[in-house]
């Protein structure tokens, strides 16, 4: 369903924050979709990486509600292929950083049953708390 978006003055602050954290000039993305087309986890994502770039570009903070950045495995396929040499995974990381700074964890350890915890690779669990932050 379509939503109505209003451009607000604050939009730019969010955009600038992500640019600062990621070091990537997100506005340079020309929306060719190479990142999404090559993403090995695309089927798990609610919105595509290219859409993340688009929303960040316009300062749409709602992008933070997406699960995409948590699905991102930092495999760098998008980064390697981007014709504008943008590091899309760094943008993902920046979004995670912003979220993490609000002290909200993606998963709660308490909610994981012991059996599940045994099956899960440790790195995956840690990854859901912190990616790139250690």
């Amino acid at each position: 369903m379509a939503i109505k978006v209003k451009f607000k003055d604050k939009n730019d602050d969010f955009y600038k924050k992500i640019v600062e954290l990621s070091g990537e000039q997100v506005a340079l993305c020309d929306q060719c979709g190479t990142c999404s087309g090559g993403c090995p986890f695309i089927e798990e994502m609610d919105i595509n990486p290219s859409e993340i770039m688009r929303k960040v570009m316009l300062g749409q903070k709602e992008v933070m509600d997406s699960r995409t950045m948590w699905i991102c495995a930092s495999c760098f396929t998008c980064t390697v292929r981007c014709p504008r040499e943008l590091d899309v995974s760094k943008v993902s990381e920046a979004l995670r950083q912003v979220k993490l700074r609000t002290a909200i964890d993606e998963i709660s350890i308490a909610d994981i049953s012991k059996e599940e915890a045994k099956k899960l690779p440790t790195i995956a669990v840690v990854g859901n708390f912190r990616k790139f932050t250690g």
């Binding site: 060719c32 999404s36 087309g37």
Partner: peptide
Amino acid sequence: LTVEDTLSRDI
């Protein structure tokens, strides 16, 4: 070919 239709966001 694997490609995103960036207008519909379908892969």
